[in-house]
Protein backbone atom coordinates (compact mmCIF):
# COMPACT_ATOMS: atom_id res chain seq x y z
CA UNK A 1 0.00 0.00 0.00
CA UNK A 2 1.19 3.43 -0.78
CA UNK A 3 1.21 5.96 2.02
CA UNK A 4 0.89 8.90 -0.37
CA UNK A 5 -2.43 10.65 0.14
CA UNK A 6 -4.06 7.50 1.43
CA UNK A 7 -7.83 8.07 1.55
CA UNK A 8 -9.50 7.99 4.95
CA UNK A 9 -11.16 4.70 4.25
CA UNK A 10 -8.22 3.06 2.63
CA UNK A 11 -8.68 -0.63 2.14
CA UNK A 12 -7.50 -2.33 5.26
CA UNK A 13 -4.26 -4.01 6.03
CA UNK A 14 -2.78 -5.40 9.18
CA UNK A 15 0.40 -3.99 10.61
CA UNK A 16 2.14 -2.67 7.62
CA UNK A 17 4.43 -0.69 9.87
CA UNK A 18 7.01 0.07 7.21
CA UNK A 19 5.45 3.29 6.01
CA UNK A 20 3.79 4.36 9.24
CA UNK A 21 4.71 7.69 10.70
CA UNK A 22 5.91 7.43 14.30
CA UNK A 23 2.95 9.50 15.49
CA UNK A 24 0.32 7.31 13.88
CA UNK A 25 -1.77 5.35 16.32
CA UNK A 26 -2.32 1.75 15.42
CA UNK A 27 -6.11 1.88 15.22
CA UNK A 28 -6.06 4.36 12.35
CA UNK A 29 -5.46 3.28 8.79
CA UNK A 30 -3.43 6.34 7.90
CA UNK A 31 -2.05 9.54 9.33
CA UNK A 32 -4.58 11.48 7.28
CA UNK A 33 -7.46 9.63 8.83
CA UNK A 34 -5.99 10.32 12.25
CA UNK A 35 -5.62 14.03 11.47
CA UNK A 36 -9.15 14.31 10.13
CA UNK A 37 -10.50 12.56 13.19
CA UNK A 38 -8.62 14.90 15.52
CA UNK A 39 -9.81 17.98 13.70
CA UNK A 40 -13.43 16.85 13.65
CA UNK A 41 -13.23 15.89 17.30
CA UNK A 42 -11.87 19.31 18.22
CA UNK A 43 -14.67 21.06 16.37
CA UNK A 44 -17.29 18.94 18.11
CA UNK A 45 -15.60 19.73 21.39
CA UNK A 46 -15.76 23.44 20.60
CA UNK A 47 -19.46 23.09 19.82
CA UNK A 48 -20.01 21.75 23.31
CA UNK A 49 -17.91 24.65 24.66
CA UNK A 50 -20.24 27.09 22.93
CA UNK A 51 -23.20 25.42 24.64
CA UNK A 52 -21.30 25.44 27.93
CA UNK A 53 -20.82 29.21 27.84
CA UNK A 54 -24.26 29.48 26.28
CA UNK A 55 -25.99 28.82 29.59
CA UNK A 56 -24.28 31.83 31.13
CA UNK A 57 -24.92 33.99 28.08
CA UNK A 58 -28.61 33.11 28.30
CA UNK A 59 -28.76 34.13 31.94
CA UNK A 60 -26.94 37.35 31.02
CA UNK A 61 -29.36 38.09 28.21
CA UNK A 62 -32.50 37.51 30.27
CA UNK A 63 -31.37 39.71 33.15
CA UNK A 64 -30.05 42.42 30.89
CA UNK A 65 -33.44 42.70 29.24
CA UNK A 66 -35.11 42.85 32.65
CA UNK A 67 -32.64 45.16 34.37
CA UNK A 68 -31.02 47.42 31.77
CA UNK A 69 -30.27 50.21 34.27
CA UNK A 70 -28.57 47.84 36.70
CA UNK A 71 -26.53 46.45 33.85
CA UNK A 72 -25.36 49.92 32.89
CA UNK A 73 -24.54 50.69 36.50
CA UNK A 74 -22.66 47.47 37.07
CA UNK A 75 -20.81 47.77 33.81
CA UNK A 76 -19.52 51.21 34.76
CA UNK A 77 -17.83 49.61 37.77
CA UNK A 78 -15.55 47.59 35.50
CA UNK A 79 -12.18 48.94 34.50
CA UNK A 80 -12.46 49.61 30.79
CA UNK A 81 -8.74 50.41 30.47
CA UNK A 82 -7.57 47.08 31.92
CA UNK A 83 -10.26 45.25 30.01
CA UNK A 84 -9.22 46.99 26.81
CA UNK A 85 -5.53 46.19 27.34
CA UNK A 86 -6.47 42.56 27.94
CA UNK A 87 -8.46 42.48 24.73
CA UNK A 88 -5.44 43.70 22.79
CA UNK A 89 -3.17 41.23 24.58
CA UNK A 90 -5.47 38.35 23.78
CA UNK A 91 -5.89 39.28 20.13
CA UNK A 92 -2.11 39.50 19.96
CA UNK A 93 -1.83 36.03 21.44
CA UNK A 94 -4.16 34.74 18.74
CA UNK A 95 -1.74 36.09 16.16
CA UNK A 96 1.26 34.45 17.81
CA UNK A 97 -0.71 31.22 18.09
CA UNK A 98 -1.52 31.32 14.40
CA UNK A 99 2.15 31.86 13.65
CA UNK A 100 3.07 28.89 15.85
CA UNK A 101 0.67 26.70 13.87
CA UNK A 102 2.12 28.00 10.62
CA UNK A 103 5.69 27.29 11.77
CA UNK A 104 4.81 23.75 12.79
CA UNK A 105 3.03 23.11 9.50
CA UNK A 106 6.10 24.09 7.49
CA UNK A 107 8.20 21.91 9.76
CA UNK A 108 9.95 24.61 11.77
CA UNK A 109 10.09 23.29 15.32
CA UNK A 110 12.22 26.25 16.37
CA UNK A 111 9.61 28.71 15.12
CA UNK A 112 6.78 26.73 16.67
CA UNK A 113 8.60 26.74 20.01
CA UNK A 114 9.24 30.48 19.91
CA UNK A 115 5.74 31.49 18.92
CA UNK A 116 4.21 29.12 21.45
CA UNK A 117 6.32 30.61 24.21
CA UNK A 118 5.28 34.09 23.15
CA UNK A 119 1.64 33.01 23.21
CA UNK A 120 2.16 31.72 26.73
CA UNK A 121 3.70 35.01 27.82
CA UNK A 122 0.73 36.94 26.42
CA UNK A 123 -1.67 34.54 28.06
CA UNK A 124 0.09 35.00 31.36
CA UNK A 125 -0.08 38.78 30.94
CA UNK A 126 -3.81 38.51 30.49
CA UNK A 127 -4.18 36.42 33.63
CA UNK A 128 -2.03 38.78 35.72
CA UNK A 129 -4.09 41.78 34.63
CA UNK A 130 -7.27 39.83 35.35
CA UNK A 131 -5.92 39.02 38.79
CA UNK A 132 -5.45 42.72 39.59
CA UNK A 133 -8.96 43.47 38.35
CA UNK A 134 -10.37 40.80 40.64
CA UNK A 135 -8.28 42.02 43.55
CA UNK A 136 -9.63 45.52 43.09
CA UNK A 137 -13.18 44.15 43.24
CA UNK A 138 -12.35 42.41 46.50
CA UNK A 139 -11.03 45.66 47.96
CA UNK A 140 -14.24 47.46 47.07
CA UNK A 141 -16.38 44.60 48.42
CA UNK A 142 -17.89 44.26 44.98
CA UNK A 143 -17.68 40.50 45.14
CA UNK A 144 -21.13 38.93 45.43
CA UNK A 145 -21.88 37.16 48.67
CA UNK A 146 -22.30 38.06 52.29
CA UNK A 147 -19.84 40.97 52.18
CA UNK A 148 -21.24 42.58 49.07
CA UNK A 149 -21.54 46.34 49.36
CA UNK A 150 -22.82 48.55 46.61
CA UNK A 151 -24.22 52.05 46.75
CA UNK A 152 -26.82 52.76 44.14
CA UNK A 153 -30.47 52.42 43.35
CA UNK A 154 -30.17 48.94 41.83
CA UNK A 155 -27.73 47.35 44.26
CA UNK A 156 -29.47 43.97 44.20
CA UNK A 157 -29.53 43.64 40.47
CA UNK A 158 -25.97 44.91 40.22
CA UNK A 159 -25.07 41.98 42.43
CA UNK A 160 -26.59 39.67 39.83
CA UNK A 161 -24.57 41.46 37.16
CA UNK A 162 -21.37 41.05 39.12
CA UNK A 163 -22.23 37.41 39.85
CA UNK A 164 -22.44 36.83 36.13
CA UNK A 165 -19.27 38.87 35.60
CA UNK A 166 -17.34 36.63 37.95
CA UNK A 167 -18.91 33.45 36.63
CA UNK A 168 -18.23 34.31 32.99
CA UNK A 169 -14.76 35.80 33.31
CA UNK A 170 -13.83 33.17 35.89
CA UNK A 171 -14.84 30.37 33.57
CA UNK A 172 -12.97 32.10 30.76
CA UNK A 173 -9.87 32.46 32.94
CA UNK A 174 -10.12 28.77 33.81
CA UNK A 175 -10.06 28.00 30.10
CA UNK A 176 -6.99 30.24 29.76
CA UNK A 177 -5.23 28.34 32.54
CA UNK A 178 -6.02 25.00 30.92
CA UNK A 179 -4.86 26.41 27.58
CA UNK A 180 -1.66 27.54 29.26
CA UNK A 181 -0.98 23.96 30.33
CA UNK A 182 -1.65 22.63 26.83
CA UNK A 183 0.64 25.27 25.34
CA UNK A 184 3.40 24.19 27.69
CA UNK A 185 3.01 20.64 26.39
CA UNK A 186 3.08 21.85 22.78
CA UNK A 187 6.19 23.90 23.51
CA UNK A 188 7.83 20.83 24.97
CA UNK A 189 6.96 18.81 21.85
CA UNK A 190 8.39 21.56 19.63
CA UNK A 191 11.49 21.74 21.79
CA UNK A 192 11.96 18.01 21.17
CA UNK A 193 11.59 18.54 17.41
CA UNK A 194 8.50 16.38 17.13
CA UNK A 195 6.63 18.32 14.48
CA UNK A 196 7.07 17.92 10.78
CA UNK A 197 5.33 18.80 7.54
CA UNK A 198 3.50 15.48 7.83
CA UNK A 199 2.42 15.83 11.41
CA UNK A 200 1.64 18.93 13.44
CA UNK A 201 -1.80 17.98 14.75
CA UNK A 202 -1.28 18.99 18.41
CA UNK A 203 -0.31 22.55 17.49
CA UNK A 204 -3.28 22.86 15.16
CA UNK A 205 -5.73 21.56 17.76
CA UNK A 206 -4.27 23.82 20.42
CA UNK A 207 -4.63 26.66 17.98
CA UNK A 208 -8.33 25.96 17.49
CA UNK A 209 -8.84 25.85 21.24
CA UNK A 210 -6.87 29.02 21.87
CA UNK A 211 -8.73 30.95 19.18
CA UNK A 212 -12.00 29.78 20.67
CA UNK A 213 -11.01 31.08 24.10
CA UNK A 214 -10.09 34.39 22.49
CA UNK A 215 -13.40 34.61 20.70
CA UNK A 216 -15.25 34.07 23.95
CA UNK A 217 -13.42 37.08 25.33
CA UNK A 218 -14.27 39.10 22.23
CA UNK A 219 -17.91 38.55 23.23
CA UNK A 220 -17.36 39.02 26.94
CA UNK A 221 -15.57 42.35 26.66
CA UNK A 222 -18.36 44.36 25.02
CA UNK A 223 -21.11 42.51 26.88
CA UNK A 224 -19.58 43.17 30.28
CA UNK A 225 -17.46 46.31 29.93
CA UNK A 226 -19.17 48.33 27.22
CA UNK A 227 -22.83 48.17 28.17
CA UNK A 228 -23.27 51.89 28.72
CA UNK A 229 -20.17 53.59 27.43
CA UNK A 230 -21.55 55.48 24.49
CA UNK A 231 -19.76 58.82 24.30
CA UNK A 232 -17.37 58.19 27.15
CA UNK A 233 -13.93 56.73 27.54
CA UNK A 234 -12.31 55.21 30.60
Amino acid sequence: MSEVAAPAHAVGHGHDALHHHAAQQHHFESLDQQHEASTLGMWFFLVQEVMFFGGLFTAYMVYRIWYPEAWAEGSRELDILLGGINTVVLIGSSLTMALAVRSAQVGSNKGAFRWTMLTMILGLTFLVIKFFEYEHKFELNHVPGANFVFEGPHANQVEIFLSLYFAMTGLHALHMIIGFGILAWVAWLAHNERFSREWSTPVEMTGLYWHFVDIVWIFLFPLLYLVDRAGQLG
Binding site: Q48, G145, I160
Partner: peptide, 19 residues
Protein backbone atom coordinates in the same frame (compact mmCIF):
# COMPACT_ATOMS: atom_id res chain seq x y z
CA UNK B 1 -22.81 21.33 28.69
CA UNK B 2 -25.87 23.44 29.49
CA UNK B 3 -26.87 21.39 32.50
CA UNK B 4 -23.22 21.21 33.54
CA UNK B 5 -22.92 24.98 33.70
CA UNK B 6 -26.35 25.27 35.33
CA UNK B 7 -25.54 22.85 38.11
CA UNK B 8 -22.19 24.60 38.49
CA UNK B 9 -24.03 27.92 38.90
CA UNK B 10 -26.11 26.36 41.67
CA UNK B 11 -22.95 25.09 43.34
CA UNK B 12 -21.31 28.52 43.03
CA UNK B 13 -24.40 30.18 44.39
CA UNK B 14 -24.27 27.93 47.42
CA UNK B 15 -20.53 27.86 47.89
CA UNK B 16 -19.32 31.29 46.77
CA UNK B 17 -22.43 33.35 47.37
CA UNK B 18 -23.02 34.34 43.76
CA UNK B 19 -26.61 35.38 43.21
Amino acid sequence: PVVAITVLMVAMERGLGLG
